[in-house]
């Protein structure tokens, strides 16, 4: 293990010393200090982070697919350049997060293998299809918007490398959301057909976006422990509520409606009431029965396999160069 990646610390499994290390860990978390890769940490904390960060990294790179679907058909050079930059950013987000996950002692190859074998998840939102150009706008506005709502509190996550990756990501995400909003606005203010296309995209993406915050608080498996560890700062329902309240006036500014007849302002709670998410749909997509689960993972595997010769060639070249410079060194 490298100096920077963590792995198991020397203290782990020391038995008698364990209580002292746990106490130091708890105290650091309570004091809002960051846990860093080589610090002692409970095995379950490490495992929780690997699970969450890997899922997050996988989501970023799988999320490139639905949008990349429209790059060759973007309606203008301006939109095409923007979309390429956005999709490239998502690749970058994946790499920041894989890099942060590796500090916990889990290698990149292992993470990708688990994704390809279906043993680690990615966000279910990317199992929905992008049927029209307006979907690119709806994804930027709603999907990136929901992601930002989730991710801003993660900038204060107790694990240092994860928090730092999130700061970098959040800086880049605001462009993603704004380009989506602007795209939808252009369509909404365009011809009646364009307006209808924008409305249709919002109608299809609204509910899946609300599902991105995860199951209701009562049914969220990992929430309590993650909150205690200060990985999670707000509950799923709190973040969902925040997102709805942010979106309602933005939808008005777009001249579009949100597909929820129960959506109305509640003066008493100072937020919007909204309808119930169809959690059976969420569960079905999670179990692999969404419209695009098969397509996304197949495409990911194919991309990985098609790139194998490039990785091998670069490694072979590096090995040859290294051998060559050794020979020169000996000759000199």
């Amino acid at each position: 293990m490298t100096a920077v990646a963590g792995g198991t610390s020397a203290a782990e499994g020391a038995g008698s010393g364990e209580d002292a290390f746990l106490a130091a860990f708890d105290a650091a978390v309570a004091a809002e200090e960051r846990i860093e890769p080589r610090d002692w940490m409970p095995d379950a904390y490490r495992a929780t982070l690997v699970r969450q960060m890997a899922q997050h990294a996988h989501s970023e790179i799988i999320g490139m697919q639905p949008e990349a679907n429209w790059i060759t058909r973007a309606p203008s050079l301006r939109r095409k350049a923007i979309l390429m930059a956005k999709v490239q950013d998502e690749a970058g987000h994946g790499l920041y997060l894989y890099s942060a996950t590796e500090t916990l002692g889990t290698g990149r190859d292992e993470l990708l293998d688990k994704l390809h074998a279906g043993r680690q998840k990615y966000s279910s939102i990317f199992n929905y299809p992008t049927l029209t150009w307006a979907d690119v706008g709806a994804i930027g506005w709603l999907v990136d918007g929901a992601a930002i709502t989730n991710q801003v509190p993660l900038c204060r996550c107790s694990y240092g490398p994860y928090a730092r990756a999130m700061i970098r990501i959040c800086k880049e995400e605001s462009f993603h959301q704004r380009q989506g909003f602007e795209l939808l606005l252009a369509l909404s203010e365009g011809t009646p057909e364009q307006h209808a296309m924008a409305q249709d995209a919002v109608d299809r993406w609204w509910w899946p976006s609300l599902m991105m915050f995860g199951p209701p608080d009562g049914e969220s498996a990992h929430s309590a422990q993650s909150t205690a560890w200060k990985i999670k700062r707000f509950s799923n329902d709190e973040l969902r509520q925040r997102f709805v309240d942010i979106c309602v006036p933005q939808a008005e500014a777009l001249g579009l409606t949100l597909p929820d007849p129960d959506l109305r302002w509640n003066e008493e709670k100072g937020g919007h009431d909204f309808g119930t998410v169809d959690w059976s749909e969420f569960q079905a997509v999670l179990k692999g029965n969404g419209p695009c689960n098969e397509e996304r993972i197949t495409q990911r595997r194919r991309a990985h396999e098609d790139g194998a010769w490039v990785r091998d060639a670069a490694a072979a070249y590096a090995a040859k160069q290294a051998a060559g410079s050794d020979e020169k060194a000996v000759a000199a």
Binding site: A3, A10, F21, D39
Partner: peptide, 11 residues
């Protein structure tokens, strides 16, 4: 190269 870094151990 990450392997070239020598670090102090915080714990």
């Amino acid at each position: 190269p990450s392997a070239a870094i020598t670090a102090s151990s915080p714990d």
